[in-house]
Design a protein around this nucleic acid. Sequence first.
DNA 1: AGGGTTCCCTGTCGGC
DNA 2: TGCCGACAGGGAACCC
Length: 275
Amino acid sequence: MGKKIESSYFTELALKYSRYNSQEIKISSLKNTNLKQIERKGKYLIWNLIGKNDYTILNHLGMTGSFNIYEKKKQLQNHLNKEKKNYVKVVLEFTDESSCVFDDMRNFGRFHLFSSYENLTNRYPAVAKIGLDGFNFSLEDFKSALELKRNKNKALGILLLDQRFVAGIGNIYKSESLWRAIISPYKIAGDLKHEEILRLSKSIQEVLNDAIIDGGSTIKNFKSNKVEGKAQEWHAVYGKEDLPCLRCNAKIKRIIQNKRSTFFCENCQSGKKSR
DNA sequence: AGGGTTCCCTGTCGGC
DNA sequence: TGCCGACAGGGAACCC
């Protein structure tokens, strides 16, 4: 933080994609601005740059995005020259010789420049509508969110992926949270009993925080389907179709909700199958 | 307005 | 063995 940008560019690879080559602000305009802060909103990162003109960047890692930070120019060169196929999209070099590289294999990530936060949210309204922060939220706020008109009639397996409800949950932790809370993914949000709301609220925050502690390496070492690292060691249901439930030994089931896989134990995660 | 569907993108894997 | 289609994921664009 506080570093001054000496040069900034999208790579040739990045410029092949419209999400990078059609931006209204040139990335080279970041030169001589200072990186003031990076703020997280759900799964988005909002960069604030201050200079002659100020800029706001909307950044999302998508599935496979990652950042590498280097202290020396040489390390940056090594990264860019890697013989192994790389997927560098953005390079930022700072005046103190350090640098930062945004890699994104599957190109689901974002790095979009704006001249103000207002312009950013005009272009991406979803950013302004982000819900509770899944890492830390109060029971009251969770309860109110469950009671919202647009939420109360939805099945939890669907609702948990809605970033306007609780932000930060992805498809893996959706299933894991429900398993820990012992609640069916079919269960309708508005039908939750007080005890269930307590358990779900707790399990969401636990799962996400556990994932950060243990899962950092999983993401970093992400290699297609072969997840390496610690987070996967405690997955109870995700990707475990037909394996025994750790709680009751029944077979884990896989269903599709909104075109997404949901894994759960039909035996112990009881609930109305109304949808 | 709000819900549902399609598309973006690439590596892996199952099936023929 | 080799090719091909299906699949996975988060979220925006698009449709009705």
